[in-house]
């Protein structure tokens, strides 16, 4: 069952088409925007008599209202090998869940929803231009849940040309397991848009290590392996490393004016809703 994501905007959409979000267009809305001369909006029903009488040039002033506009909603997802990780929960499944929830919510709001999947480049088979059909999203989700992710996340930077020229709401879903310099480059290329970074981690990788034992870990992307002798000290070291990484990521995102959402458990729509409530407030 899909849950609704109540995404809200702090900015006004420039879209012409009416929708559910505050827009820059004037038209059929509830919220008074300004007075315009009658000649600009020739609707006699909207003539504001009081404002017209006060006009020293005896012109007619007409009230115009803010139109609720639609936006374009994009999910830019990292489909690199590291997203294959399946610990307490599968990152791939979280991605599919989020994709379906976003498409469902976009459909409810009347927004158009697009998906850009990136590995070391933007994969044409994982690219879906913005639209309002739910069926094709379902097909895509089925494809993704069956897919075998490989490669690295360098392609995220190349996602920008696929995004619309005007401001859109972009969910950036990744584990952000790449260098911060690459992240800065990515975020500066996305400055035009409202970016919601969702950091997908798993408790198995950052926190949930056993106290004692021997384990051989293999990097999903590079294939390199290391043997670890787990002990409380090393476990603490890994925890600290992840905490530091979290701080570094937060600083980096805030520098570009967006607040990251860390998901260390399975995907939960309530977490995203809470994130938007906090953001607007």
């Amino acid at each position: 069952m899909n849950e609704h994501l109540h995404y809200r905007l702090q900015w006004q959409s420039g879209a012409v088409y009416p929708g559910a979000h505050p827009g820059q267009m004037v038209g059929g809305g509830q919220l008074f925007k300004r007075h315009v001369p009658f000649i600009a909006s020739p609707d006699p029903r909207r003539i504001d008599l009081r404002a017209s009488v006060l006009d020293p040039f005896n012109g007619f002033s007409v009230r115009v209202y803010q139109q609720q506009s639609s936006i374009k909603l994009y999910l830019v997802a990292d489909l690199s090998a590291s997203m294959r990780f399946c610990g307490e929960s599968s990152k791939q499944q979280s991605l599919v869940q989020l994709l379906l929830d976003m498409a469902y919510s976009a459909c409810n709001y009347g927004d158009s929803f697009g998906f850009i999947g990136c590995t070391d480049r933007v994969k044409p088979c994982w690219y879906m231009p913005a639209g309002q059909s739910l069926e094709r999203v379902k097909a895509l989700a089925a494809d993704i849940s069956q897919a075998y992710f490989s490669g690295n996340a360098h392609g995220l930077i190349h996602a920008t040309p696929y995004l619309p020229g005007h401001r859109a709401l972009v969910f950036l879903l990744s584990d952000f397991h790449f260098p911060l310099s690459q992240l800065r480059e990515l975020l500066s290329s996305l400055q035009n848009h409202d970016v919601v970074p969702i950091v997908l981690w798993d408790s198995y990788e950052c926190d949930n290590w056993p106290d004692w034992g021997l384990v051989s870990v293999q990097d999903l992307e590079s294939g390199k392996d290391r043997t670890l002798f787990m002990r409380p000290a090393l476990r603490q070291k890994i925890r600290v490393a992840y905490a530091q990484r979290q701080m570094a990521l937060k600083e980096c995102f805030r520098a570009f004016g967006c607040e990251p959402l860390f998901m260390t458990a399975a995907y939960n729509a309530a977490l995203i809703n809470r994130y938007f409530q906090q953001r607007v407030a």
Partner: peptide, 21 residues
């Protein structure tokens, strides 16, 4: 040893004891 997948090994700090073992 059985290989356990990890998304990013860079996150795991270098550990001399593990290396020696």
């Amino acid at each position: 040893l059985r290989l356990t997948a990890m998304p990013w090994l860079t996150m795991i700090p270098a550990d001399g004891v593990s290396l020696a073992i």
